[in-house]
């Protein structure tokens, strides 16, 4: 029943979609990430855990170059390859990258528009205007985010009238509209109640059939519940990365053990 994991069954799984090699990242002079090496595989849920300020969110934001918004952020070395392309290459268009790598934020941030317009936003800014196309995508994405039945009768109402959990799932649906391959989630449930959290987790479980998902979470239970692989970060370093079962049941690094058992600090 409980599979015994060997290094070999990690290699003959699906090919890694994201490869991180010797990645160093700094805010100004303060280095935030040290020499990260990691392979993230397609259609798996990978969760990043670690205490606050350990660099996991920063790392997550490197995958869609959200850190470009911060002027003092700079890559000091190494590379991140998505589908074999170094995303920090000069040739890479950030806009195309972000269409490929969707993101859901800690605080649900639906635009103060109607539910329909929120989903359609990603397509509209690409210049897609035909109502028929948009209608189809809106329905598809809302169904994909398990939200269709809850909101189908009020698509034209403001998204801000929804509950917190619905808003967060709307944000996920909105991210799906631009058809990404990879979904980044930055503490998507930190502001949600347990039932809304459960729904989002359920959704993540559904979505991993089609998407590669990377989730940053403060809740170790959440990481344990939803993810296939778990990475533990501490002080900007990747301490341990492996199957969630192994990390939680039998971590090799004493720091990981201390953190997940609450004996940290």
């Amino acid at each position: 029943m409980a599979q015994t994991s060997t290094p070999s069954d990690m290699t003959d799984e699906n090919k890694p979609i994201i490869e991180i090699r010797n990645f160093d990242f700094a805010y100004g002079d303060a280095q935030a990430l040290f020499d990260i090496n990691m392979d993230i595989r397609e259609k798996e849920v990978t969760s990043f855990i670690g205490p606050s300020g350990c660099g996991k969110s920063t790392f997550l934001r490197c995958f869609n170059r959200m850190n470009d918004l911060i002027d003092i952020a700079n890559i000091k070395g190494g590379e991140i390859k998505i589908s074999d392309i170094n995303i920090y290459d000069k040739e890479v268009d950030v806009i195309e990258l972000r269409k490929h790598v969707g993101m859901v934020f800690q605080k649900s941030n639906p635009f103060p528009k109607s539910i329909y317009d929120n989903i359609a936003y990603g397509l509209r800014i690409q210049g897609i205007k035909q109502k028929s196309v948009l209608d189809g995508v809106v329905e598809e994405c809302l169904r994909g985010a398990a939200l269709w039945d809850e909101v189908k009768d009020r698509l034209n109402e403001s998204a801000l009238g929804m509950s917190g959990g619905q808003q967060q799932r709307l944000c996920i649906a909105r991210a799906l509209a631009v058809k990404p391959k990879i979904l980044l989630m930055d503490e998507p449930c930190s502001a949600l109640d347990p039932i809304a959290t459960a729904k989002v987790e359920e959704l993540i479980h559904q979505l991993k059939k089609q998407y590669t998902i990377i989730i940053v979470t403060h809740s170790m239970q959440q990481a344990a519940r939803v993810s296939d692989k778990t990475a533990f970060f501490y002080l900007g370093k990747l301490i341990e990365f492996g199957k969630t079962d192994d990390i939680f049941m039998n971590p090799t690094d004493p720091q990981t053990e201390a953190y997940i058992s609450g004996r940290f600090g």
Binding site: A2, R225, F248, M249
Partner: peptide, 8 residues
Amino acid sequence: VRYITLRS
């Protein structure tokens, strides 16, 4: 043990 560890 797995269920207790991962599913609380």
